[in-house]
Design a protein around this nucleic acid. Structure first.
Lengths: 236, 236
DNA sequence: GTTTAGAGTTTTGTATACAACCACTGAGAA
DNA sequence: TTCTCAGTGGTTGTATACAAAACTCTAAAC
């Protein structure tokens, strides 16, 4: 709660928004906390202007809530809308997986090689390999980042900017949620990603959608199982 | 392109963002146009600060695109991602309709009256009635607003803030798109809304989802039919 | 003729200063 | 005691001013 996270790189005030976001996810700024602009400006060593712009972005992401002349507060923990967030992921990501499979089928049919597709596909392979290594070394915090990158890469395979932008919209809360359960769910879930990619590669739209939906559903179940195990960590 | 829309109320610079959004939708700022902050500040008679904040919001909504030190430009016409937007509506709004039906079933089972539900339900009835009147008078521009209000009210019936926030996210583009087709599609589509509400009231989850999906699918088909009729109005 | 280096202009990003507004405290009256 | 209301402190919203980066146009060299 005290320090504003690892100052890490001097970062020159580069993207204060990213740092505040990370601090919210890490719990440095607890849900319900009032985010006073001058205080933040001092903590992050910039003026109020960048702080304000960052708060607007975070508001759009649903990580903070603002009212005119009343300031901003950290949004309630995503635990509150976990059910909703998982359902949203199920419908949106099923759709992206289905689309990606459709595009794969089209590319397989026509023999015109798509540079962007191949590049993305290569990146996904690298992400999957990196995930295997990370699991072997039990560095689960890195797995969280890789997981996000995988799901976004699939979304990009779909080629739909609207879907991507919408997923990015809730990515903050998803990451927030995921970070609570990665140790338990991560290693078990990772191999499922290869199933998803296999269905997409094969151009099987329905299967890709179904596998992705099942994948997210399992994440959801694992999450709620964890929540009932541990003492519910502040639902407020 | 010249005047920045009806100055309407003095509005005190109240919500410049809303005015800029309206102007983008109305075509005052054409897609691809560079939005220079000083120019906007003069047009809307405020300083650059509110302009910048408005641009951030519009960026989050996908109506403008920004790059650091490179400024903002009006996003490409939603015509580009019409297919995506309709698909997103199908999956998201089916989900909200399903949820609303589920809540209705629960409320019917337990006899505890939910004040918020009743209020929303009443508002929907009023919206539907108002729509009938507006259609009778052929004031279709008002229908666009009512249509948006109806779909948001259904989303609110679902009780899921995450879904609502996500729909609000793309509401700008949806409205932009809808405004191109309201005269043709509006009157025909309106009665379908009562079907949707009937399914929700009856607590029939699957049917509510299916009817909503069909409703949006018809909107999509009507839209594309219109697009192939008229000379495609600038796909760039 | 084409390309490249560079200075000048333009535009965005940031800091400081001031105005508008809200929330809270305290006193006074019912 | 409790309710009302005015004053005051503090926080956000906005305007002005300055710094940093990008774009552009010119001119010279290959």
């Amino acid at each position: 709660m005290s320090e504003p996270a690892p100052p890490a790189a001097p970062s020159s005030s580069g993207d204060v928004g990213a740092r505040i976001r990370a601090d919210i996810i890490a719990g440095v700024h607890a849900p319900g906390t009032k985010l006073r602009e001058v205080a933040l400006a001092e903590q992050y060593e910039v003026s109020r202007i960048p702080i304000r712009e960052a708060l607007r972005s975070l508001e759009a992401e649903g990580l903070v809530e603002s009212r005119k002349y009343s300031g901003s507060i950290v949004a309630p923990s995503p635990v509150e809308d976990a059910e909703d967030l998982f359902e949203i992921r199920i419908v949106l990501e099923s759709a992206t997986a289905k689309r990606a499979a459709k595009r794969a089928a089209e590319l397989n049919a026509s023999d015109t090689p798509d540079a962007k597709w191949r590049e993305l596909r290569k990146e996904i392979s690298e992400i999957l390999d990196a995930g295997d290594i990370v699991i072997g070394q039990e560095r689960f915090e890195d797995l969280a980042v890789l997981n996000m990158r995988f799901h976004f890469a699939v979304a990009e395979l779909s080629g739909s900017l609207s879907f991507i932008s919408l997923l990015r919209q809730i990515s903050g809360k998803i990451e927030w949620l995921y970070s609570l359960n990665v140790t338990r769910r991560g290693p078990q879930a990772w191999p499922e990603h290869r199933e998803i990619i296999a269905a997409i590669d094969a151009g099987q739209e329905a299967k890709a959608a179904e596998v992705m939906a099942r994948h997210v559903r399992r994440s959801r179940d694992s999450y709620f199982a964890m929540m009932s195990d541990t003492d519910r960590p502040r639902t407020t």
